[in-house]
């Protein structure tokens, strides 16, 4: 009899379906896309959907201040202020934490990175979170000076969270219309999965897309979804009507 593997459902039906129920529990997944592609919304939806099922989550922001993040959340049906007030969803500005630690330099030393990693683990442990989001890992990598440090940081973060059965999403910002999944091209190799938010051109308009590029431990197809960001419903997916892409390729 097949053993039912444990998954962490994103709460976005089409996506969960594609991944056999959800992201394998404890995975570290890179959510990649250009700015405005819906990375933050997707991650927030992931956290709030989890919180509704009783899974506590934490969102570490590096680029956006807290008030802006919560302002953007208002209006989404998945958003529930009570979940924040009750501590089911925690939104933490990592810059403040770093500031308090005295890590306010542009570049981190190995020791700095170690201290930051420790505090992240400690916070995750203290809050007993099952879902963690880092928005964005690109901004963090910018402060780590070498590829080895980036590799080390993501790897250690991923493994220590996996031990806690905490599923992690790291957002990764790439320039628009590129076929790179991460700025430093290391993040993608260390992560267990990649969700790529891109776009395809159709008759001069850009259609947002989502593609599961890689997901260790689950069978998935690399078919593209059309992604819609509804002001109320958040991220919605539908199989992409494929004809266009094929045609536009032919025309090239």
């Amino acid at each position: 009899m097949p053993i039912k593997k444990e998954v962490c459902s994103t709460g976005i039906d089409e996506l969960d379906l594609k991944m056999d129920g959800g992201i394998p529990l404890g995975s570290t997944v890179l959510v990649t896309g250009c700015s405005g592609s819906g990375k933050t919304t997707l991650c927030m939806q992931f956290l709030f959907n989890g919180a509704r099922k009783g899974e506590r989550g934490v969102f570490f922001t590096i680029t956006e201040p807290l008030f802006k993040l919560t302002k953007n959340l208002e209006g989404f049906a998945f958003y529930d202020k009570k979940l924040i007030e009750s501590g089911m969803v925690n939104i933490i500005d990592l810059r403040i934490i770093s500031e308090r630690l005295g890590l306010d330099t542009e570049k981190y030393t190995v020791e700095d990175a170690g201290a930051l990693l420790d505090i992240l683990k400690d916070i995750a442990d203290e809050l007993d979170v099952k879902r963690l989001v880092m928005d964005s890992i690109t901004a963090l990598c910018y402060r780590l000076q070498t590829r080895e440090m980036i590799r080390d940081f993501i790897f250690k973060l991923g493994t220590s969270l996996a031990v806690m059965n905490c599923t992690t999403l790291l957002t990764s910002e790439v320039p628009p219309r590129t076929f790179k999944f991460s700025q430093y091209e290391i993040e993608e190799f260390i992560s267990d999965g990649i969700l790529f938010l891109g776009d395809v051109e159709r008759k001069g308009d850009l259609i947002r897309t989502l593609q599961v590029i890689k997901m260790r431990g689950c069978a998935h197809t690399r078919t593209k979804f059309a992604l819609n960001i509804s002001a109320q419903r958040g991220i919605e997916l539908l199989p992409l009507l494929k004809t266009t892409e094929f045609e536009s390729l032919l025309k090239r």
């Binding site: 201040p65 807290l66 008030f67 925690n90 939104i91 933490i92 500005d93 990592l94 810059r95 403040i96 934490i97 500031e99 308090r100 630690l101 005295g102 890590l103 306010d104 330099t105 030393t109 020791e111 700095d112 201290a115 420790d118 505090i119 400690d122 916070i123 203290e126 809050l127």
Partner: peptide, 27 residues
């Protein structure tokens, strides 16, 4: 600052840190 990261860390209460991180704006 560099020499005192760990020292500073040990002085701070995690709960307070989380509280500050969830409410404040970077100074």
């Amino acid at each position: 600052k560099r020499v005192s990261i760990y020292e500073q860390r040990s002085k701070m209460k995690l709960k307070e840190l989380i509280e500050i991180g969830s409410t404040a704006i970077p100074s």
